[in-house]
Design a protein around this nucleic acid. Sequence first.
DNA 1: AATGAATGAGCCTTCATTCAT
DNA 2: GATGAATGAAGGCTCATTCAT
Lengths: 203, 203, 203, 203
Amino acid sequence: MNQLPSKLQLRAERKGKKRDEKKRQIAESALSALKELGYASTSLRDIAAKSDLSLGMLHYYFEDKTELIIFCVSMYKREFVRGMSEAIDGAQNRDQMIAAFAEALVRSIIDDKAIHRLWYDIRNQAMFDTAFQPIVEEVESMLIDVVRRALRAAGQPDRDVEIQYALLDGVFRFLMQKQITSDPPPSRQEQLNAMRAVLQGFL
Amino acid sequence: MNQLPSKLQLRAERKGKKRDEKKRQIAESALSALKELGYASTSLRDIAAKSDLSLGMLHYYFEDKTELIIFCVSMYKREFVRGMSEAIDGAQNRDQMIAAFAEALVRSIIDDKAIHRLWYDIRNQAMFDTAFQPIVEEVESMLIDVVRRALRAAGQPDRDVEIQYALLDGVFRFLMQKQITSDPPPSRQEQLNAMRAVLQGFL
Amino acid sequence: MNQLPSKLQLRAERKGKKRDEKKRQIAESALSALKELGYASTSLRDIAAKSDLSLGMLHYYFEDKTELIIFCVSMYKREFVRGMSEAIDGAQNRDQMIAAFAEALVRSIIDDKAIHRLWYDIRNQAMFDTAFQPIVEEVESMLIDVVRRALRAAGQPDRDVEIQYALLDGVFRFLMQKQITSDPPPSRQEQLNAMRAVLQGFL
Amino acid sequence: MNQLPSKLQLRAERKGKKRDEKKRQIAESALSALKELGYASTSLRDIAAKSDLSLGMLHYYFEDKTELIIFCVSMYKREFVRGMSEAIDGAQNRDQMIAAFAEALVRSIIDDKAIHRLWYDIRNQAMFDTAFQPIVEEVESMLIDVVRRALRAAGQPDRDVEIQYALLDGVFRFLMQKQITSDPPPSRQEQLNAMRAVLQGFL
DNA sequence: AATGAATGAGCCTTCATTCAT
DNA sequence: GATGAATGAAGGCTCATTCAT
């Protein structure tokens, strides 16, 4: 049905690429403002101010606030998934897997707590506002997939992978919450122990 | 040290009681609006309109929006905890416990999903706004206590009760989310199965 | 045209007296709240709370907020005028008059600055809201009268008494303002010196 | 230490200039609403409506109501001070000074009574709300400076310049008040006579 | 005579979004 | 492409006032 790519199409495509690149750039900047304040209390003006982006530009590249936020969160979560994938792919047996997976998860809790917090914020919004549902579903299916691969690699059946994901997510979120609201937050070691114990439970 | 209650004291007390009663009444009404739209997108005006309460009255009984919401959520969650307590207290052995606990949890997911959704909303807010932290902490410590009692009754060590809570909460939340966003939502039986399997994992 | 006072009239009169007495009582209480916060930022609820008066009572005795405030201020200012009158009446020559008058004015600046501040607030309102004009006029004519009597007693012509009042009021207000906003406020002695110098200028 | 102004700096500067210009413009509009109703009873909505400005714009240029009002009043009072300065600077001897100063003051009472009324309103607010104190202090120190220069030019000691200012201000305010609340207001000639008499008293 | 619960208009402020340049 | 000035709807909250008791 499609013609071979014409010059016009090519140019349009290149434009699209460039535009996407710019979007990523903007999202990167926006993310740092967003993760600090959360979805509800970050105005586009805040984002513009903190990121040295102009207010107009945000709307030039993104239809509305929702699209921007979805773009930001999904961008980060994709990266997070890649990171986790690498961690479990590198493992050569069940023990290594548990060690590596736990290590990667805890490191992310500590380093990127603010973004995960934002993700949970979005995931919650999705239960009220359907606009967020597609992205949440997409991200969660990637996360579930990571768990599935971990299960397989560990020689476990992957029948109840969704529930395994839910369990793991419960603990991940819990530790992250402690990381943010407890004073002092749990030490890296405590978190590692907890995470390992959990992984040992089903891997 | 105190005199016997004087007439004045008695009257003041009765006033307080009445006021508390009214607060509960208002909260009940507010809850139904809140459940539907969530924290961020429910304005006090929405609540007033949906509940046939006047805007002024909301502020007459509650200092601000935050106090109202905290009151509502905590009121419901307290009741939820009581329900769960009863469920596990009635059980006379491990199997009964698992059955009863799973049953109670799933029933609540189905009947009260909207309120749990609100609870998760508030719990998330708490990571951005410290005003919500005390109530979240209070509710979670009650929930953890329920898990602890279930563990003990089942003859399990309650060392890692917080983590057990986190696991259970992860699944509970996951099923609730599905209940709300999946079409069709998982059947009661599927949920029961999943919940039982999880409980069997650590009870 | 009038009948001789009938029993009914007498009773009504007595009632009126009682009511007036109560109004004075309320005003006294209200004044202490009012002088702290000023006209604009004192709500009737503030007054009720600070004075242990019920909100309903304030409206039971006073038509509206304006009437209450007018009543309060005028009550105080009347007393102030009486105090000043006494001070100058007691003097037996020009020097004593200057000393006594200055002394009384400065004492009032120090002791009652908050009420004078309120008076100046009302006087200012009167330039925007005619409701306040009668009381302001009444009080100022009393104040002018005090100045007139001081002039006469000092053997001065009282032709430009209004202007003399304006001059004196300018200084009085200025010292009061300093008393409130300067840190540290001018000492009693400094104020006395200034006030005496001014009085010497025209008495 | 600074580089020569770069293009960026120049642009930013021009932006700031333009913004300032707009602020002045808005303030000018706002002033006419403010003059009429006074600080307490003018809402930003009133200002917006009367000035054909949008509510949003007021907040776009001014942080809050306080900043707007301070800007307006200080803008006008600065001009007033300049006018007075010119009047006294033009005089070549004491008599000319008295004549010119009185003339300028009375003219302003008649022409700008509404703005002075607003100034006195703000000055009063400052005694209740510290936010207004800096601007009041600034304006008054300019006014005192004018008096000081008049004193010096007339060959008088300027020891008690603050008190002289207070005296003059007392009369100025009194005449302005009469101008607004008396019916009929004092004639220009009466005011001139009064003002001259006062100036003769200390210049 | 006295109370305080209830009202709702009105206030200041925030913010996503639009649009002229 | 990019900007930021301008908009106006909506939000939380305050308050004088009314009224049933």
